[in-house]
Amino acid sequence: MTKLLLLITLGICSILSNALSTTTPKPARVGRLSRIRASLKSEPRSRSDLKNGIAGFYDRSSKLWEDVWGEHMHHGYYEPEDREDHTQAQVDMIDKLLDFSSLDGSKISSVVDVGCGIGGSSRHIAKKYNCEAKGVTLSPYQAKRGNELAEEQGLKGKSSFQVADALSMPFPDSSFDLVWSLESGEHMPDKEKFVGELTRVAKKGSSIILCTWVHRDLEEGEELTKKEVKLLRKINRAYYLPDWCSSSDYQRIFSQNDDVDISTMKVDDWSYVIAPFWKAVIKSSLNLRSVVGLLRSGFSTIRGAYAMGLMLRGFNVGLIKFGVITVKMKE
């Protein structure tokens, strides 16, 4: 999801579409709302349903995001929090993550973007380090659009994107100097296998940078409350997500891998630096083009828009966090 910020945009569009509509009878809107609410109460999806749902959701919604916000399908970095150069803030998010990992750019010749969207991060890193970048996504639309943008930006042959499952990537072991995943880990139904793939394709001495939505860390023996679980399950239905985990869970999983240099691991909560971006995206949605784009993108996108309030609620009460985990592989 994230990627989840897209739904903030769509939520405002949904509100506007109801407010501006003069042709849709009120009973029809009520019926649509009832259908959305009912769908959020359904049973958790199977892995195959999640995979198909993710691909379909991003096939339908990525063009709307690009039309409104451009090629970077992720949050911006807001320090100071009142900055208004929003596109640059998105680029700064990439650079801040690279800095946070203490990355030596001179040693980067290859990078893989796991859950690449339309490849904004991959292309930025390819330009920054003059390296080769590859990206994987479940969305055929995103892979196609990513390759189109690479050619438009003079990166054909240096940046390429393909449809592939992040839990079974089509790359040999020890292929990349940098393994990058920005706002995609939340979609992975098997976190152990996900981390296993990140480490498998990483070269010795390489860096892994994972930035993802997580739930709050738990004390030993503590569990999420029933109210918290209920909220997360509704979000999962709307956004095609599996069960959530915490940053601590990721730390544990990485720590169990013998090829990971645990002494290099850094973990942080960047919720505070991304929160101002939501206001900016909401403001950007106040136009007819966004409304029309939403209405054309189908039920699942509209449902995601409706459910964005659930995401905001979880964020505001401290249940949902924006976690950053970086680590290096052993030499």
Rank of each mutant, 00 (worst) to 15 (best):
S284P: 02
L231W: 01
S159D: 01
V111Q: 12
S101L: 09
G293W: 00
S62G: 06
S17Y: 01
E228D: 08
T87Q: 05
K134L: 14
I282S: 13
R83F: 00
L178G: 04
S285R: 08
Q88C: 06
A19E: 13
S101P: 09
H86S: 07
S102V: 10
C131Q: 07
I282R: 14
S39R: 12
L4Y: 01
D177P: 05
F171G: 09
V260Y: 04
D177K: 11
K127F: 03
K226L: 15
N316T: 10
I253T: 09
S168H: 06
M265F: 01
G185T: 08
E152M: 10
V260R: 03
K134Y: 12
A38D: 12
G117N: 06
V317F: 02
L182K: 11
R123T: 04
H72F: 12
E183L: 09
K226T: 14
S168P: 00
F194V: 07
D217H: 05
I8Y: 01
A164H: 01
V292W: 03
E192H: 14
R237T: 02
L286G: 07
K144G: 05
S168M: 07
T24M: 11
L4E: 04
V163K: 00
S139C: 07
E197Y: 09
W69V: 14
G205F: 03
G318Q: 08
E186D: 03
D165E: 03
E148W: 05
Q153C: 04
M311S: 14
L40E: 00
A307E: 00
K227F: 12
S102H: 15
S159V: 12
P25C: 05
G314W: 00
L210G: 01
K283F: 02
P27N: 04
L286Y: 00
T22C: 05
V267R: 14
Q256P: 06
T212N: 10
E192Q: 14
K63H: 12
K204N: 15
E151M: 10
N52G: 05
A275G: 03
R237W: 03
W278Y: 14
K204M: 13
E84D: 12
S61N: 05
I125W: 01
S109I: 02
D85A: 10
P189S: 02
L155M: 11
L155I: 07
T23I: 05
G293K: 08
S17T: 10
K204A: 15
L286P: 04
I15H: 09
K226S: 15
P44N: 05
S21G: 04
G115N: 01
W213D: 11
L97I: 07
S174C: 07
Q142A: 06
R289N: 12
L149M: 11
V327G: 06
V114A: 05
K127M: 07
T225Y: 00
S181D: 03
S14P: 00
F315Q: 13
D217A: 08
V195S: 07
D177V: 07
E81L: 09
K191I: 13
L231S: 04
I108Q: 00
S102A: 12
K96R: 15
L231P: 02
V68K: 11
F161C: 04
V281Y: 06
N130C: 05
A126V: 14
H215W: 10
N257Q: 13
R233D: 09
F171N: 12
D104G: 07
N52A: 13
